[in-house]
Design a protein around this nucleic acid. Structure first.
Length: 227
DNA sequence: CCAGACGTTGTT
DNA sequence: GTCTGG
DNA sequence: CCAGACGTTGTT
DNA sequence: GTCTGG
């Protein structure tokens, strides 16, 4: 699954990678993030619902469906299984019409050893930026509060990660970014089947300090290899 | 029909 | 044990 | 994901 | 809003 990740690159690099003509609201001041946790704002790309242009936007991680009475439901909806998201009331509408990219350059998985768990940091070779397949929604509270939030799809682990953990986030290869964002593809099971997985040999996995366990800790020590 | 949930992971 | 917050 | 709280009333 | 369970 995916419960923590990193984004250390600067907005200028994001824009270079994603297209210069994009509207972006990633905001300042920007700082590298080594321990992004659920409920926090994450940097995303989506099609603007009106202009249908790509836009950069910060979304709260933990999807709050438009119909929710209590926004606390978002704490449970940080991941969506790609195998079943189309049939879930919380995700099906967003999967059809409100897909997004969640930008990251690494993520963490915990491997349980009895009562302790060992965190691992997973990234691509060369530290390349990548994108999780995400869903977003907009929630309007009774007092006019508006919260835009997102969830990250999960998939069975590939051969490289299977020994660490049985699930992993769905990572889109750059060739699939456009079709994922494209609001025209409403046949979601066909869309999901068409995605090309990132080759397992592109990943690098290292065990890291348990300091990453504490969501308040956010410094380069989180990604330093240990052992 | 209405009421109530709406999720994933991992562990037993 | 279960829920909430980060 | 993990960490940390887990409750109400009334008073300041 | 939409689905499931009673």
């Amino acid at each position: 699954m995916c419960g923590r990740f990193t984004l250390t690159v600067q907005p200028a690099q994001l824009i270079e990678r994603l297209g210069a003509h994009m509207q972006e609201k990633w905001g300042e001041p920007w700082q590298p993030r080594y321990n992004i946790a659920p409920s926090q704002l994450v940097a995303c790309v989506r099609l603007n619902p009106h202009s249908t242009q790509r836009e950069g936007v910060m979304l709260r991680w933990g999807l709050i469906p438009a119909w929710a009475k209590d926004p606390a439901i978002g704490t449970k909806l940080i991941n969506a299984r790609m195998e079943t998201a189309g049939e879930k009331p919380a995700f099906s509408a967003a999967l059809q019409r409100q897909r997004c990219l969640v930008l990251a350059d690494g993520f963490y998985e915990w491997q349980r050893h009895g009562r302790f768990s060992q965190p691992y940091y997973i990234r691509l070779r060369e530290g390349r930026l990548f994108a999780f397949a995400g869903l977003w929604d907009q929630w309007r509270g009774p007092e006019g509060t508006v919260i835009e939030s997102c969830a990250i799809l999960t998939a069975p682990s590939n051969s490289f990660l299977a020994s660490i953990h049985s699930r992993m986030p769905l990572i889109l290869c750059p060739d699939d970014w456009d079709v994922w964002l494209d609001g025209k593809e409403h046949n979601t099971s066909r869309l999901l089947r068409s995605l090309r997985p990132c080759p397992p040999e592109d990943f690098v996995v290292v065990p890291v300090s348990r300091c990453v366990n504490d969501p308040a800790v956010d410094h380069p020590g989180c990604i330093e290899p240990v052992e």
